[in-house]
Design a protein around this nucleic acid. Structure first.
Length: 705
DNA sequence: AACCCCGAACTTTTT
DNA sequence: GTTCGGGGTT
């Protein structure tokens, strides 16, 4: 059976799949069959009897990847999904903590705060402590807390050099106290708590170390410090860790991912098996050559060169538009043409660096009537009506859940205003109790009638819970809370009503596939907020950020806005590391394309309410010229944007948007000007070199075009 | 409690 | 330019 399992693997893939039980690092380039290697290795370990389902742990970053892995394993051999530990870091940690809640010091039915819940918990904390949230913005405090947790630091381990940090640290401590009191755990806490559980409980640690002899890690370049420590601890008994990653696709340093983990892994685990998967099965030659050439400009890589046995294929098409509007129009025309030639719209993607860029593109697409789908909006379980419904469900399970209570005590409106809430909050804090208990004791001043009614409502709902299954509980929650009623009366509530109905169906599906448990359902809702994409229906063009495109592939890719300041983004220009991450991002974008790649840029675009002029991205010049086909080389920019330019035309003729050449700084675009005659200055954007004010009288600028 | 207005932000984001 | 959120008003 293993022969059919292994057939069709190339030599490197084969070597990786059949490695003995030693720690190994697999450098898997884009499109090199990484998921196949991971799943086949698991199937091989199982089918050869080297490992039991019980002894394997495989960890990914997204639920999507975890599901994909499970599905593909199941396609190769019969597996028991329960005994295989395949999941996200957070999912597996949750699993561990649910099993050992007592040892972890958690209540049996602890709830998970998603980022939005965490933020509102922090706001509530600041209010309760009377802290000025101007001086300590909740966002910042959240970052501080999460950042420390992701480094494995509890409050007492935070080093302070100034009063401000000392205060943040004190708030971190208070936040922990609040979470403990309410029996809730945020995302970072799931990781840290289970790390500490294993670290401090020798018996448990020994058990799991002995159990998981094989550990496989996907997207290793995206692990953060704590995740790495977690893996190291769990593998401490000599487990064979099979780490798969690609340092060139590390694009999440900004949220704590530490590529350095790959180097550390080599030394810490004494890895002497490093396998490179460099054969790419996705893209044609020119596309790969472009990607390779681009990424070669980064320093400190582990080193890797993708190759293919496919033909060179088409050149990369480059289009330089005069404006963002024209860029969008060009794309619409090309997409239309490809579609006429028989390409599915869903096999084409428009990629951009930042979400704001989608606007112009969407506008042009909308006008053209081409169906399109934008990734990245609100997900199902993040919608307010869903969060409201779940808050009622939470209250039914545990009315002392302050977060949930505050979310819905006055939604739908029932006459409980801010003043009442303040009184309730103070009473609760004074008595060291939950807000629910304060509400029950009637300490709500004049509005106590309304509060009493709310207490009655929740108690009434709780009284009806016995004997109901999850689906019926959800139904009860949305009906008796008045949510349904409220949205039915709301002119714009139609979609929300439908979502609430979908929630009932989601619950029904959940109890079919899982256990009939409110806690489990709520946990899943926090851990998997749902798909990012709109309902897949008709064939539609795909629009998304480059980040969102990671892991996907398309017949044709349009990489848009390839301009200095946008890609690489202005905010990344200050450090070389940041620019290198942008370059990796561009590398990811390019390697999404199978056959056709378009790179487009606009000489001017609306940004932050004003027209901005930019030059081509340095990344474009890092791609060998012979791979590119300029669709409009020598193209004269169209008239300046129709918007009137405030200033009178300068007598030197260097109007905003003019292309100039400087002997030292190279090619640039005039962005602004000032003064006349001998004191005339112009501001020029030289892209990589920066934006500079130059005295026209001295600077030897030549007008080009 | 609904409404309105003004100011601030505005790169990327999974769990 | 637009949106989002907070604060003030009706």
């Amino acid at each position: 059976m293993s022969s059919s399992l292994l057939s069709g693997l190339n030599p490197e893939q084969y070597a990786a799949v059949t490695l003995p039980a030693v720690p190994a690092l697999i450098l898997a380039g884009a499109g090199s069959g990484k998921t196949r290697v991971l799943t086949t290795r698991i199937a091989w370990l199982l089918s050869t009897g080297q490992a039991s389902q019980h002894g394997i742990l495989a960890v990914t970053f997204t639920n999507k990847a975890a599901k994909e892995m499970l599905t593909r394993i199941a396609a190769q051999l019969p597996v028991n999904a329960r005994s295989l530990w395949v999941g996200t870091f957070h999912g597996l940690c949750n699993r561990l903590l649910r099993m050992h809640w007592r040892d972890a010091g958690l209540p049996e039915t602890f709830q998970i705060l998603d980022s939005a819940d965490q933020l509102s918990a922090i706001k509530r904390l600041l209010k309760a402590l009377n802290i000025d949230d101007e001086k300590y913005p909740p966002r910042e405090l959240a970052n501080f807390i999460n950042g420390n947790k992701e480094e494995g630091r509890r409050p007492h381990e935070v080093e302070c050099w100034d009063d401000y940090t000392r205060q943040l640290k004190a708030l971190y401590e208070e936040y922990e106290r609040q979470c403990r009191r309410e029996g809730v755990v945020d995302f970072a806490e799931l990781l840290l708590r289970s790390y500490e559980l294993l670290r401090d409980n020798a018996a448990l640690r020994g058990h799991y170390q002995a159990r998981f002899r094989y550990m496989l890690v996907d997207e290793f370049q995206d692990t953060n410090r704590l995740q790495y420590k977690w893996l190291k601890l769990l593998a401490g008994g000599g487990a064979a860790v099979f780490a798969v990653g690609d340092d060139d696709q590390s694009i999440y340093a900004f949220r704590g991912a530490n590529v350095g983990n790959m180097r550390d892994f080599e030394t810490d685990f004494k890895v002497d098996t490093l396998i490179r998967l460099e054969q790419n099965y996705r893209s044609q030659g020119n596309i790969l050559d472009a990607a390779n050439a681009l990424i070669a400009h980064n320093r400190g890589r582990l080193g890797k060169n993708l190759w293919t046995d496919q033909a060179a294929g088409e050149p990369i098409r480059v289009f330089e538009a005069a404006s963002d509007f024209e860029e969008a129009q060009f794309i619409v025309d090309e997409v239309r043409q490809l579609h006429r030639e028989g390409q599915n719209l869903s096999d084409m993607a428009l990629l951009y660096r930042s979400n704001a860029q989608s606007r112009v593109l969407e506008h042009a697409l909308f006008q053209s009537g081409l169906p399109y789908r934008v990734y990245g909006g609100l997900r199902f379980f993040e919608r307010q009506e869903i969060k409201h419904a779940l808050a009622y469900l939470r209250l039914m399970a545990n009315p002392e859940d302050d977060n949930a209570l505050l979310r819905v005590i006055n939604f739908p409106a029932r006459g409980i205003g801010n003043r009442t809430l303040e009184i309730l909050g103070e009473t609760a804090r004074g008595g060291g109790s939950s807000i629910w208990l304060a509400a029950c004791s009637g300490g709500a001043g004049r509005s106590s009638a309304a509060v009493g009614k709310f207490v009655q409502l929740i108690e009434g709902m709780r009284a009806q819970m016995a004997g109901l299954n999850l689906t019926e509980l959800v139904q009860l929650a949305i009906e008796q809370s008045g949510l349904i009623e409220h949205y039915r009366n709301d002119k714009e509530g139609q979609e929300r009503l439908e979502n609430l109905e979908q929630l009932v169906s989601a619950a029904a599906r959940f109890i079919q596939d899982n256990e009939d448990s409110v806690t489990a359902f709520l946990t899943q809702a926090s851990l998997e907020a749902g798909e990012h994409e709109a309902a897949p229906g008709q064939d539609a063009l795909q629009l998304m950020t480059v980040h969102a495109a990671k892991g996907l592939e398309f017949h044709a890719v349009f990489l848009t806005g390839v301009e200095e300041g946008l890609f690489p983004h202005d905010n990344s220009l200050s450090s070389n590391e940041a620019v290198e991450e942008e370059r990796r991002l561009a590398y990811v974008a390019i390697t999404r394309a199978r056959q056709r790649l378009y790179i487009s840029l606009a000489q001017s675009r609306m940004l932050h309410g004003q027209t901005r002029f930019s030059i081509a991205s340095r990344f474009l010049s890092e791609i060998p010229e012979d791979l590119l086909k300029w669709l409009n080389r020598g193209y004269a920019p169209a008239a300046m944007p129709t918007r009137k330019i405030e200033k009178t035309a300068p007598e030197h003729g260097l109007r905003v948007g003019a292309n100039v050449e400087h002997p030292k700084f190279g090619h640039g675009v005039v962005v602004d000007y000032d003064g006349t005659g001998k004191s005339a200055n112009v501001q020029v954007n030289f892209g990589a070199v920066g934006v500079k004010w130059l005295a026209l009288d001295y600077a030897r600028l030549t007008l080009i075009n």
